[in-house]
Computed example of a mutant assay.
Amino acid sequence: MTRLAHFFSRLTLLALVGLLGFILWDRYTPPAPPATLEPIIGQIDRIVIEKSERRMVVFQGDTPVRTYNIALGFAPEGDKVLEGDGKTPEGLFKIDRRNEQSAFHLSLGLDYPLPEDKARAHADGVDPGGDIFIHGQPNRRKSPDPILMDWTNGCIAVSNAEIEELWAVTPIGTPVEIRP
């Protein structure tokens, strides 16, 4: 077998494995979240996201009431600088909108970019990006996905069941701290 034929046979095999992985990923149905969690009673007061831990904690007063595993932007290290960089912004934000008609299962919008983000981007001659949300899984999928990897364009993703819980208890104006 020539080197070129060997190369193409390996390339074909790699493409088939990738296609099989994509097909299986699209049909995977994860187990339902545990039904033993007590529901969150009342509204939450703040959200803290720890990017390095892939964790989001919601609080009522000083009491943490729920912890979620999260997915972030596809290039999560560091603060968001420009549109398309795949980074999740860091800092203090607020929930400023709710979208039931999102391309993802429900979404809670953050007030990014802040004036200082816009000023920095303007000084650098770039677009700071926007439309940063806490949201569920893409609506095109058949079921909620487990959080296996970072895949968003800079948003914070949870399972569909988790965003439904958050949606019910998170008012507009809720502070959100995103830590490195």
Rank of each mutant, 00 (worst) to 15 (best):
V65G: 03
A157Y: 11
G129M: 04
F74V: 06
W167G: 06
G18F: 09
I49K: 02
P180S: 15
R140C: 00
R54E: 08
F74Q: 05
V17K: 03
K94F: 12
D127T: 01
F133Q: 05
G86Q: 06
P89W: 12
T29F: 02
V65S: 04
T36G: 06
A15R: 10
A121Q: 06
M56S: 06
L13N: 09
P175Y: 03
T152Q: 05
L11C: 13
F59W: 14
R27Y: 14
E164K: 09
F7P: 03
T63C: 00
R179T: 09
G42N: 12
V58M: 09
P180D: 15
P33I: 08
E50I: 11
L110F: 06
V48Y: 02
D117P: 00
I70R: 03
A35T: 14
E90C: 11
P115E: 09
R141P: 00
T29V: 15
M1P: 13
L37T: 04
F59N: 10
G84S: 09
D111G: 06
G73T: 02
I40P: 08
E165G: 02
G91T: 10
P30W: 09
G125M: 04
Y28M: 07
P64H: 07
R120A: 14
R140W: 03
A121W: 00
Y68S: 02
V158E: 03
R141V: 07
A103V: 07
L24D: 07
A103K: 09
R66C: 07
A32Q: 14
P113K: 10
I132E: 01
A123P: 08
L92D: 15
I178F: 07
D124V: 00
V158M: 07
H6V: 14
R97T: 08
G73Y: 05
V176C: 11
H122T: 11
L148I: 09
E53K: 15
L19A: 14
L20C: 13
Y28Q: 11
S9L: 13
E38D: 15
P115S: 12
G109S: 13
P180M: 04
A168R: 15
I23S: 13
A168I: 08
F8V: 10
I134C: 05
R3Y: 05
D127F: 05
K94Q: 13
F7Q: 12
L108E: 08
E116C: 02
P115C: 06
E116H: 13
P31L: 10
T67I: 08
L108Q: 06
